[in-house]
Design a protein around this nucleic acid. Sequence first.
RNA 1: UGGGCCAUCGCCAAAUGGUAAGGCACUGGACUCUGACUCCAGCAUUUCAAGGUUCGAAUCCUUGUAGCCCAGCCA
Length: 557
Amino acid sequence: MDNKMEEVSTSKNFIEQIIDKDLEEGHYNHIQTRFPPEPNGYLHIGHAKSILLNYGLAQKYNGKFNMRFDDTNPTKEKTEFVESIKKDIEWLGADWEDRLFFASDYFTQMYEAAIKLIKKGKAYVCDLTPEQIREYRGTLTEPGKDSPYRDRTIEENLELFQNMKDGKYQDGEKVLRAKIDMASPNINMRDPILYRVAHMEHHRTGNTWCIYPMYDFAHPIEDAIEGITHSICTLEFEDHRPLYDWVVRELEYPVPPKQIEFAKLYLTNVVTGKRYIKKLVEDGIVDGWDDPRLVSLSALRRRGYTPEAIRMFIDLVGVSKGNSSVDYAMLEYCIREDLKLKKNRMMAVLDPIKLVIDNYPEDQVEYLEVANNQENSELGVRSVPFSKELYIEREDFMEEPPKKYFRLFPGNEVRLMNAYFVKCVSFEKDEAGNVKTVHCTYDPQTKSGSGFSERKVKGTIHWVSAAHAVEAEARLYENIVDEEKGKLDEEGNLNLNPNSLEIRKCYVEPDLGKARPEDSFQFVRQGYFCVDSKDTNSEKLVFNRIVSLKSSFKLNK
RNA sequence: UGGGCCAUCGCCAAAUGGUAAGGCACUGGACUCUGACUCCAGCAUUUCAAGGUUCGAAUCCUUGUAGCCCAGCCA
């Protein structure tokens, strides 16, 4: 229809351009990608970029997307992490169908691949200690020197490697190394270690193995075995690509997979470093890996973020090779955009004062019919009780209003949303001098939906009937890292935002009393909230704020 | 004089030698029974810098500058 729009949206990122070229030149006749996490922690928003990028590419090219756990180092990995990772990826909507793999399933093939290299004279067993290996490796500016064990015969290497596998050596005693070039300017090519000895129980293979392959050796093999065409990883592996290609070439795979690197996602005012998250958890600053202030996928889910919003966000952010840090506001935009038409707009008062309608009958209750979402009639209507005594927001009344203040102040008239016009006649303060109660009169002619148009009012405020309201707890979250001070101080510690969590007692519409964990709503003028899915120490309903609404009017405090 | 990568608006990011897309943010204004939403308008004479090639350069060349990554038997 609109070709111009089409053209704009079809601009391809650099990875798609590479793939197009590969297909065109006949390097591959299908596309296969994968997401290969090590099960050593929880997934966060940064991983979502990789997952969605790989999955999206497979979809676009009618290819396949594999899920693969890169579990080649038993010292760090746990089944618990495998489960949480699977759950998060399913939640995001990336479907690996029946292709769930583990690097550990290929240990035998990797072992055989190592033997093949030894037989080709491309790998040798080295007896140097870890310290010696480091010394022999040279530095960034100086070449390394050959290991004295570099010229062992093929037969000797074969036997020694067999012994490694058979558990005849202690951890660290011997390693298998690739024979490449100790003088290479690329440190990764200075006879990198292929296999190390580790007498350690693996979460899947138990004690079957006591030697484990290193990432640089294992990864290309995993990709080749699975028929991966494009092995997409982050920028820090760029220097490893020559080694990746070396392994693939020496092992003579007929359809060599190709590694492509892209820039990781960083978000402003947010902590993604494992080291920092761990510290926050240990210091009790957050209540775990799914604390709603974090950006782990489980935290975002608990906070009320939707997979749709995250997909939109990743899509908006794009893919490139430049290190960058995306403004957190973009993530917030995505969740607002997603929830806008999907969620009911409810009235909730987070900082209550009382409003009494002096001329409203004492015992009268009216049930007002209210649209759940004025912009989406499919969400239907509900009925909201209205009575003489209401709670309204403290900020919606001012004794001495500044200019352009449209809400309640003595003598001013506003609309109670979905109900009547009320005019402020007086107010009461408590001993501390804080406003406690506002008295108004209402005009029965001005009922919502009556078509009354004799006079207009500048402000509309939300309310909740005091006798019917349900008491709840609202948790208002902000970024955990202090925006003003930046991320780290001189000593490398995080500057935390002391106001990252504010807990408020609040009153919500009676309908909200029936809300279930993970249900989410827009609270008029307060933002989007989600019922907490975790047991809390509170008996009350707990609402987590997903995101606040934008506001162009700020009260001067 | 180690190697690799990168540099386009406050933040992401297109543009592949033909005269700087788009989104976020921000700023005006209109509308409004949510100061939201929506709508409309504005927002890079210039692409890290300086030279050069060309009818024409963000794109090519030269020389600088800034940033990121690499010396785990981690991934």
